[in-house]
């Protein structure tokens, strides 16, 4: 059996309940990283570094810019069609001491730094020993920031909520 050098679909943990759950959780985590600002990612990596917990990594690919063809659906729910492309930056890293862990980062826009930090964090996240740190120090921060953004945006547009009235005009009465 060949080593699964490129099959990063499965996290390294053996404790994962099953593959699809583990994938789902990893996907959720990557989503949080992609939607985050760069500052908290940087802060978390710095704090790992200060605690001596940040291992070395090698770039396996990128960071590099490319395109993703964006699809929509007719009517929002029908047949899919191509809307246009979006610029994305991607990066893949391997941990220097644990080469079988491949971390991936994909983020919209021209953001090489974000993509690399994301890839490193994805790789570290796959190490069981670092999991509690992510659960305690990074994920809640990112989730709170995202929630706050949702609420701020919603509050802003909520002020423009409108009720239209239809009125019966007098002329028709007689």
């Amino acid at each position: 059996m060949q080593s699964q050098a490129y099959d990063a679909g499965k996290p390294a943990q053996d404790s994962a309940p099953n593959e699809s759950d583990a994938q789902h959780i990893r996907a959720e985590h990557l989503r949080l990283l992609a939607l985050a600002e760069e500052t908290p990612l940087e802060a978390f990596l710095d704090s790992l570094d200060e605690q001596g917990l940040l291992p070395g990594w090698n770039l396996a690919r990128g960071p590099e810019a490319g395109l993703v063809m964006i699809r929509g659906r007719i009517g929002g729910q029908g047949q899919p069609f191509n809307v246009g492309e979006a610029l994305v930056t991607r990066c893949c890293v391997r941990l220097s001491k644990e080469q079988d862990i491949l971390g991936c980062g994909y983020v919209l826009g021209e953001r090489p730094r974000h993509a690399e930090m994301m890839a490193v964090l994805d790789a570290l996240w796959q190490k069981p020993d670092l999991a509690p740190l992510f659960d305690k120090e990074l994920d809640p921060v990112l989730a709170r920031a995202l929630q706050a953004r949702y609420e701020a945006d919603r509050a802003q547009s909520a002020a423009t909520k409108v009720d239209f009235f239809t009125m019966v005009r007098g002329e028709d009465k007689d």
Partner: peptide, 12 residues
């Protein structure tokens, strides 16, 4: 992505 076989949100 090619190297992951699950869907991944990349931004808004």
């Amino acid at each position: 992505p090619e190297e992951l076989d699950f869907p991944l949100v990349i931004g808004e």
